[in-house]
Amino acid sequence: MPRSLQRWLPRTAYSVYILSMSIRHGLLALLEHGPRYGSQLRSEFESRTGATWPLNVGQVYTTLNRLERDGMVAQSGEDEAGHALYAITDTGRSELRSWFETPVDRSSPPRDELAIKLAMAVGAPGVDIRAVIQSQRHHTVNAMQDYTRLKAQALAAIESGGSQERDDVAWLLVLEQLIFQTEAEARWLDHCEVRLIRLAAAAGRETGTAAPPAPVTQAPAAAAGPRRPRPD
């Protein structure tokens, strides 16, 4: 499975947030398979997540230092090539177990630029909120198309059964998370648009003015023209 491609995947604010929360635990999970050195951890982390959230070696060593300070990993000699190896400790193991057992916190949502943008677009002079919604929908659905193509590739790789199957499955799960995430956004945009249309229609009825929201692009003039007899 080609990996360099995945660097193309957008790094959203959300993924950066997830990343900072989970590098520690991600590294612990990898160390549970046995002692490893820094750049080895980096490449294993990336192959599990399809490099959706690229790490640099500096981040890995910073995180290892903190884990060592907190007693969750310990240095454990060197391999033949002289790489300093790290091993998980019992404290680290119990931390890892409780990470798997504890749900990820969703109660303090990360700041979402899109939600803020739409909130600000409501009633903003000179802003066509339906155009704002459509341009976001375009972008979101386009991203979903790309994720879906990558997913089809991952599925094909899994079906053809390769040596990297575990990585491909892990990558598939990450891609599907991105697909469901973007899907939720697309659905929410649909919902916002329908709600705004209803509210505008209700407001129009109250003031007695017909107030359908302006279309994003004007329908071609011909469309409004008189009925043409059907050619027979």
């Binding site: 459509q134 929908r137 375009h138 979101t140 659905v141 386009n142 979903m144 198309q145 994720y147 879906t148 697909i179 469901f180 973007t182 899907e183 697309a186 659905r187």
Partner: peptide, 13 residues
């Protein structure tokens, strides 16, 4: 369903 539309080469709105 956006998730199904995402299988397409092109999405027309």
């Amino acid at each position: 369903e956006p998730r199904f539309a995402a299988w397409a080469d092109r999405v027309v709105f």
